[in-house]
Amino acid sequence: MRVGLFVTCLVDLFRPSIGFAALKLLEAAGCEVVVPQTQTCCGQPGYNSGDRASAQALARKVLNEFEACDYLVAPSGSCAGMIRAHYPDLFSDQPEELERIKRLCGRTYELTDFLVNVARLEQVPGRFDGTVTYHDSCSGLREAGVKSQPRQLLAKMQGLKLKEMEEAEVCCGFGGTFAVKFGEISTRLADNKCNNVAASGADALVLGDLGCMLNIEGRLRRRGDMKTQVLHVAEVLAGTDGND
């Protein structure tokens, strides 16, 4: 099957290792992976800030770039959720494009969801010795239905122990531009998350969205916690870390 990897703008800019980890996992699952080179952003920043026209233009761009693939896979619940849950709204008054958009939505997956439910990845290449705790990102959980998939994959890894934290499903306070506009509130929510991570005693926080990662890691380090690793689930599963 031909999978279009939607890297996401944050991964492209901040942490390419997540993109390469996703690539490795998809190839390990036997997929032919293509990476459309003109891809940029799914349009979520504009969409959530009220700039519908710009969101629509970017959605159209994603549609054109990925329509020829059997699947669109993103290492992000947030971007996959944007496409699946919100693209149809952007084209609700344009029946022809809406049909194409709906077909794309039905073939769009968050990475771990795809690996478990479509590609049925059996062997996980990575190795991690230690305890991890998992943060459920809001869009992944509530828009893309990602909950058990990353845990099922992590459970396949020898040496890795999952210790659930309290309030794993509560927002970390990122919220895109919210994190800058309402910095104080956002920081408090990140702080709550850090407290729960710390209380879990895990060596690493693992999660599936880079936005939450930057937020929580940023707060952990500012609090003086240099020890707890913050890793994307793709990096853990692929056995690559942020420094590769």
């Binding site: 890297v7 506009k181 930057l214 380090r221």
Partner: peptide, 16 residues
């Protein structure tokens, strides 16, 4: 708004 209460983890240096 971000860095008053948090660090910003720096990019790895090159884009994907």
């Amino acid at each position: 708004g971000w860095t008053a209460g948090r660090d910003m983890p720096a990019p790895q240096g090159k884009t994907f």
